[in-house]
Design a protein around this nucleic acid. Structure first.
Lengths: 343, 343
DNA sequence: ATTAGCACTCGTTAAAGGAGAGTGCTAACA
DNA sequence: TGTTAGCACTCTCCTTTAACGAGTGCTAAT
């Protein structure tokens, strides 16, 4: 267990390093306002903290920097819940301005978040659990081509172009759309493929001749793939961090950011609440010297998506956690409003 | 005017430098298969070429590198039209696979182009000149919110959520949509705002009470902004170029890439055909040590969009120009097919 | 006209030295 | 007994110096 003095000094060192990105020396600490010990005393404490694994040296006679264990301790025990900053009010504006659809809210939030923190923000879009089909439309452009449009109750619109098989007549198409709308209205998006294959398939067979091919076209266009919606903001912010001054790190960082599914998987595994993953706690190699902070947002009990910030391990944990907390609350609330209005 | 020998040596130097990114010395040149002069002779020629401004030295006793004037001459006079490579066939596949909508074709092409060249590709989407409104739909989600969907004859779909003013009833909304569809079907997208303000406005006023506000909502949602469609592929490719080994260049490059309108303006000014802009010929500061190669694609006489590749001045001009030429032809052709099928 | 030879230039790399920041340890102090 | 001053030591960073090599320009010979 750490003494009060050890706690104080550990905190000061980490705070200082987060600010300066430079190893912190005993002399510098002793000059701080809230410190009244001599450099020598502080050196003793620092040696202890190093023995315990909370601090490291970059070389034998350098100042100290926090170890990953140090950051872990800092995050778990030393964070002083910050007074909610004015920034949070900005979220309210962005999110509750009702004329946007939810997708845009998410995107804007990602941008905002990275602007406020100067880190990279990643938001995993709302999962489709609770969204339901509102309407399906097919509009023919030419006798051979058409565009299918799918609207959910959350205002999300998805569209695909496809070509109409020769065997299918306009009236067949119309019939099919009518049946689909009739049967699928209000069905949760996630259940669409199943429902489509069971009841609807046989029903359409009765009315539409040679329906198989058209049906497959449509199904392929919409219901097979469920691309993850990932919004990334402020990738360039990382370039400003001093730990990214060497080009190889930049390269591997950008390479990693292009693997969207990997990122998505990483974020999906998140449990509820705020979670901080520091350095090697991350499973992905390219961010083993980064920290990832994730928060979830909800609809009722159901987890809908994840908000995350990615930065160097030397991250402003206090600020970031406060912001993420606030944003996750705002989004949960916004989601709830949607829900109430739509059911 | 340059002698044959000067031409040969200039070409060899530039070819070599484009490959190696290293200053080229006389000895290295004399060893090439198609060169039969001694290093001393070559040195004389190189000195002449330098006097004429085609070559430069990085320091007083270094090998030569091409100057911008040198590249200019190279591009204008020394390019041997390359045999169309197999790569071009890939374009055909991507572009003529009819089930995609045009937007996706453009996007895929951008990716493909940067993959093939290892430079950054930028494509300015097809202008809306010739696209016409096919259908306008408004789907209400709740009594207060609705999503408006606009479909063009090219299969392009645009959608916006908006809230319905309290004063407006469902039947009013329906009336309005009917009028809009009736009056605006087949109208070119670019003329929509004008048409909307003149004939349609007065017409709606007759049928829908208190239409002003709703009308403005809708108009704001769709017709005021015409965001440029810009597709960028392979931004990370630039990181691999040796001229981007220093982080500040990377920073300013990425900063520049975020200013989409600036890029769009730069590309819009393009005249027909292939155009090469080398180094300081570019007006934008951040790419004063890059070359930009642009090509246009057409529908009939009308220029529809621009394809561009951005790389270091030390660029594989031969390859890039061939590819761009091919792609611009493919896209023009694809566009023509669309047109024929849709009118 | 071409080329061999040679002195010269400049960038690159390695080694060497000094300054500065910071440590660990010991001994003195309150 | 906990705290502090003092001091030798270590390591990085920066600068200087020297050697090396790639490449040039010029001159004289072919």
């Amino acid at each position: 267990m750490l003494t009060g003095r050890q706690l104080l000094i550990l905190q000061v060192i980490i705070d200082d390093f987060i600010q300066s990105a430079q190893p912190v020396g005993s002399r510098a600490i002793s000059k701080k306002d809230n410190i009244s010990f001599s450099p020598a005393t502080i050196r003793n404490v620092m040696a202890d903290l190093e023995d315990m694994g909370f601090l490291e040296k970059t070389h034998s006679s350098s100042g100290r920097i926090p170890s990953e264990k140090g950051y872990r301790f800092y995050v778990d025990n030393l964070l002083s819940p910050e007074i909610i900053s004015d920034d949070v009010n900005v979220f309210k504006h962005v999110i509750q301005d009702g004329i946007f659809e939810f997708e845009q809210v998410v995107q804007k939030s990602a941008e905002l978040l990275s602007d406020l923190t100067n880190y990279t923000s990643i938001i995993l879009g709302p999962e489709v659990f609770e969204t339901k089909l509102k309407q399906l439309q097919i509009i023919t452009l030419t006798p051979q081509t058409a565009v299918a449009i799918l609207i959910t109750n959350t205002g999300h619109v998805e569209h695909r172009s496809f070509s109409i098989p020769n065997e299918m007549s306009a009236s067949d198409l119309e019939k099919m759309v009518n049946i689909l709308n009739d049967r699928l209205h209000g069905v949760p998006i996630l259940q669409l493929p199943e429902k489509l294959n069971t009841e609807v398939r046989s029903l359409i067979r009765l009315y539409v001749s040679d329906f198989e091919k058209s049906f497959d076209y449509l199904k392929a266009a919409f219901f097979n793939e469920h691309p993850v919606k990932l919004y990334v903001g402020g990738k360039t912010n990382m370039l400003m961090q001093p730990e990214f001054k060497d080009i190889d790190k930049v390269r591997s960082f950008y390479a990693m950011m292009e693997k969207e599914d990997e990122i998505a998987n990483m974020l999906k595994a998140t449990t509820d609440g705020i979670k901080v993953t520091i350095g090697h706690e991350n499973k992905v190699d390219a961010i083993k010297d980064c920290s990832l902070i994730t928060a979830t947002y909800h609809l009722g009990e159901e987890q809908m998506g994840t908000i995350a910030l990615l930065g160097p391990t030397r991250m402003e944990y206090n600020k970031v956690i406060t912001l993420l907390n606030a944003l996750s609350n705002e989004m949960t609330e916004a989601l709830y409003m949607w829900y109430k209005n739509n059911e």
